[in-house]
């Protein structure tokens, strides 16, 4: 969604797919987004969406096994583009996975609401297979001054 735009500011990080990195991931992305002076609510939207995508990579993509997660954030004017990618197992049926309350892990107390929250809190959500294996989640958030 954001490959061809000329950006004002950007960062990319790779980190281990470990649960203890969830807080780090969402705080890092939200700290970078502060330069657009978002509201508290907009920052919470971003934090939640990042947390959902990272949790999905760790729990579903890598099933708690070793792996890396890549986060790229681009800022162009008042729009934030966030890409979160892993090289895990991917998702067999993406449109089914995006349905509210759909989960393959009900016994593990998963709610199946992750993609629903990402979709609700962001202005655009795209979920696709990673050509290198795994999943790529791309999201867009418009900061409305």
């Amino acid at each position: 969604m954001s490959n061809e735009i000329e950006v004002d500011n950007e960062f990319t990080v790779y980190f281990d797919a470990k649960l203890e990195n969830e807080g780090f991931a969402r705080s890092m992305v939200s700290a970078f987004c502060l330069q657009l002076n978002p509201t508290v609510s907009e920052i919470s939207d971003i934090k939640t969406a990042v947390s959902e995508a990272v949790t999905n990579s760790i729990i579903h993509g890598y099933a708690n096994k070793k792996g890396k997660i890549m986060i790229n954030v681009k800022i162009k004017a008042n729009v934030i583009y966030i890409t979160i990618a892993d090289n895990g197992v991917g998702i067999a049926d993406i449109s089914q996975a995006r349905q509210p309350f759909f989960t393959t892990k009900a016994k593990e107390e998963r709610s199946g609401m992750g993609f629903t929250l990402m979709e609700s809190f962001m202005d655009a959500l795209d979920v696709r297979d990673n050509p290198d294996g795994g999943l790529i989640v791309s999201m867009k958030k418009i900061i409305r001054a």
Binding site: T48, S51, M113, G114
Partner: peptide, 13 residues
């Protein structure tokens, strides 16, 4: 100060 959908799963269970 923060909760995501994991919290929903915890509460439902």
């Amino acid at each position: 100060n923060f909760m995501d959908s994991t919290g929903i799963g915890v509460l439902l269970a």
